[in-house]
Amino acid sequence: MLYGFLGPNGAGKTTTIRMLLGLIFPTGGEVRVLDQPVFGHEGSGSPALRKVGALIEEPAFWMYLSGRRNLEYFTRAAGPRSEQQARLARIDDVLHTVGLADAANKRVKAYSQGMRQRLGIALALLGEPELLVLDEPTNGLDPQGMREIRLLLRRLAGEGTTVFVSSHLLSEVEAMCDRVGVLAQGRLVADGPPDVLRKGADVIRLDIDDATLARGVLGTLAGVAIEPGDGLRVRLSPPATAASVNAALVAGGVAVSALVPEQAGLEDVFLSLVEGADAPR
């Protein structure tokens, strides 16, 4: 399963991720990851997090150490010895997976932003996590690198890892994810497969004879929002339907020659959800 976590800046994506990983404390409620509580283990760390790999905002390393040694030291920083041994044995594998095998012994100081991003993903993969939490994983990567990472994440999801990706690249989430959640103002305003979400907002294009008259009629209808741009496009939300809009226009004396549903992109859905959350209640 590949889950895409969307939201505008300031919606609370990073705050949510930080809570999932035990970094910031919730003011109320409980945080559970892989069916186990995250908090209440401030002494030696939550057992749930041992099965989680994470990239939190941007990668961070000890700059004066090599990429390989960074992975080694993060491994040795915690966990039972058997788990550490298993991770250490995988270092070469994950470095190879992210394409850093040749640069492994260079200091991270000398890495490009893209290489640091790859090393961050390598670190997240090191523990063969059941849950992979990645905040903007393709940040700083070139198109080729983005493609590689997307394919890698798809492959991991296919192999049974749950991948939780936050992103502001809607097209990326739309193309890659099995399920999408949209966060706005700290609330999850939508959650479901991308194609189901897409049907959540209907945009129709109207071919009419008198645009000014039509706009006047449409302005009085509940659930109808006129889209900016060329032509007359309206976004419908309950109680408005294509049929009711048609009836109202005809009753208002507008000749309707066509009423065409547009395939809304996820971006439109996203914007309509986020705008809805912003509106005063």
């Binding site: 401030e42 760390g45 993060f74 966990g79």
Partner: peptide, 17 residues
């Protein structure tokens, strides 16, 4: 300030430890 603290805590290295 290096950012490594969040990776250590999420590793998870217990805070007190």
């Amino acid at each position: 300030s290096a950012g490594t603290l969040r990776y250590l805590i999420a590793r998870p290295t217990g805070r007190r430890r």
